[in-house]
Design a binder for these strands. Structure first.
Lengths: 117, 117
DNA sequence: CCAACGTTTCAACAATGTTTGAAACAATGG
DNA sequence: CCATTGTTTCAAACATTGTTGAAACGTTGG
């Protein structure tokens, strides 16, 4: 055994694989951890049906929490949790208006909603 | 109170909201459950860093499990689990070659990888 | 047929994510 | 200042996901 090789790999792959620089080459071509982390947090935000519904609804128009709650039938505290996950994923943000909090899509939220739609 | 109205909503939203048909109108404009479910299962597949890394690696070239394992340092059984999540999300599939299983991106997997990259 | 290899499956366990209801907070109107 | 309304926070219960190591499966070569 010489150098970086430890694993046997099938012929059908070996050639292309070595051309690409082997494991080292492929790993180097991967996005950095920060980018991967961003992707993961968006994905997590989208990994629940009610949250997906909410961002689609917000893509129609901004809404206060009371509307979102009325639309989904969820309790305030429950929806508050889901909204916080969407906020952490960078998909929504909120502005205060009097007694109300109005949630709306961020730029990223808009792009994501367009793309998955 | 007349008709569908039960919730007080702030002035800044009311007008636009009623134009869109209120809650009923907005709910009707949402994607159907099947579509939402598909989005969620793709999102879940992407909601772990190692899985995201794997699909990026597979976008460079198909790989047998032993290579993926070597690349990530994960145990076989662990990686096998993550690959099954990616498969359930419809992002990857595999073909057998002799003793090896070679994973590669599906069409959906390719589109997703391109978009998130 | 047997042994070796690549891979998956399984069950127990650990870790994370979600729900619940009560309590707290902030803004408004009286 | 007080009561009310819209919303968040918190901790405890609960549910879903991820990890581990051992055992099983399928394919290959001897």
């Amino acid at each position: 055994m010489e150098g970086t090789k430890e694993t046997e790999i099938p012929d059908s792959i070996r050639c292309e694989f070595e051309e690409k620089g082997g494991i080292v080459g492929i790993v180097e071509s991967l996005p950095d951890d920060q980018t991967i982390g961003d992707i993961v947090s968006v994905a997590r935000a989208l990994s629940d049906p009610v949250r997906v519904r909410v961002i689609f609804a917000l893509s129609v128009q901004p809404m206060c929490v009371c509307l979102i709650v009325a639309m989904t039938g969820y309790a305030y505290s429950k929806m508050s949790y889901h909204l916080s996950v969407l906020k952490e994923g960078g998909l929504v943000c909120a502005r205060q208006e009097g007694n109300y909090l109005i949630y709306y899509l961020t730029d990223l939220g808009r792009r994501v909603t367009l793309w998955i739609g």
